[in-house]
Nucleic acid binder design. Structure first.
Lengths: 197, 197
DNA sequence: CGGTTCCTTGAGGATGATCAACGAGGGTGG
DNA sequence: CCACCCTCGTTGATCATCCTCAAGGAACCG
């Protein structure tokens, strides 16, 4: 989902700056705003008692996040934190609901973006269940690749091993071991500790 | 999502009967129809090479399924199979899209149902990642309980151990062992091999 | 009954998690 | 330029747990 900035501003939206690692909303918090990233990136994730984390989704410039929660009477299923210094435009729930009411083409766009998210999440679940760490990692690399520009040749994976671990629900050491194994099998390339896929 | 049957029929929808375990659509198939269950139940799931299965969702009377795929240019992320003899009403994709265009209240209802699905799937993912088998099983029992009527006392769980295993991505034996353990801890009850929660 | 499906148990093995330690790179301030 | 620190990557040893395989028992249904 992406709404034109001028439109958002004209409806009274305000931009807000977040430092790196700042919380935008918490798990189980109530949804009050529509959030759209102007610049930066945001991570939605859960963490459990052992400090293990699971990244639900990553968002970059132009993406909105947490918008599904605006439609239902449930609290946020996960936490949102900025990955780096980030500027986000916020619009109140009420105005957002009015906006999509007012502009059918936006409502349609919104619907499609929800449908896409369902699709993505279905694939994630089916990937996770597949158990094999390598499979999970490949699944992650593939989803992120779509967000990347390059098509030919290999792309630098802009995530630390820890981040990949958080995304796949694995442990750092496991990620490392699987990656080096995949390197030997030429499924990825590791040059100077940097991962290429 | 649920659309009035008369309305569906007036738009040329047709009811179709499926025997138990019949496939309604396949993973990676193209979405051509809106499906709504008149009577029976349907399971959406993935299976991997080892024959291991993961149930994405279960649907009963009045539920629609696979509708998110009608909005996007992607194939079905999972397979749909009837759990028992089931009657389903089908409407072509084109007519479905027209219907929700025509009736704003339906479009809104559809949007909300998509948002709910996202929420549910987010919770599933965060649950799965939690690793602990017991946690996964409890998560499953909770989601299914919502679909059940009883509130007071314990409810008979209408699923076989195998079905629970498929839903949680665990193995039958693991499910059995965890359940007996939970029985001792009084978290569930097993009477005559039947599971109550 | 006889067959089918589901439940149950045990033993053994595979694998990811955990713990502990170290190495490498990059940035900062003296 | 060097010393220091901090984050990230890497490795090995050990542990816990779920999976696998195999076998048998219980419930249900014609």
């Amino acid at each position: 989902m992406q709404i034109d900035l001028d439109l958002l501003f004209s409806w009274g939206a305000i931009a807000e700056k977040y430092k790196k690692n700042e919380t935008i909303f918490d798990e189980n918090g109530t949804a009050h705003f529509y959030y759209q990233i102007i610049d930066g990136s945001v991570r939605l994730y859960n963490s459990n008692d052992d400090g293990k984390e699971f990244t639900q989704d990553l968002f970059i410039n132009g993406d909105s996040f947490g918008d599904a929660s605006l439609l239902i009477d449930k609290t946020y299923p996960s936490k949102a934190v900025s990955l780096k210094d980030t500027t986000i435009i916020k619009l109140t729930k009420e105005k957002f609901l009015k906006i999509i009411e007012e502009y059918p083409y936006l409502q349609k766009k919104f619907m499609v973006s929800l449908a896409q998210k369902i699709h993505a999440k279905s694939e994630t679940s089916s990937g996770i269940i597949n158990q094999k760490p390598e499979f999970r990692i490949v699944a992650f690399l593939n989803t992120f690749k779509r967000k990347s520009v390059t098509c030919s040749d290999r792309v630098l994976v802009p995530y630390t091993r820890q981040e990949i671990a958080n995304f796949t629900g694995l442990r750092v050491e496991t990620v490392i071991r699987v990656c080096t194994r995949m390197n030997h099998l030429n499924k990825v390339e590791i040059i100077n500790h940097k991962l290429y896929y």
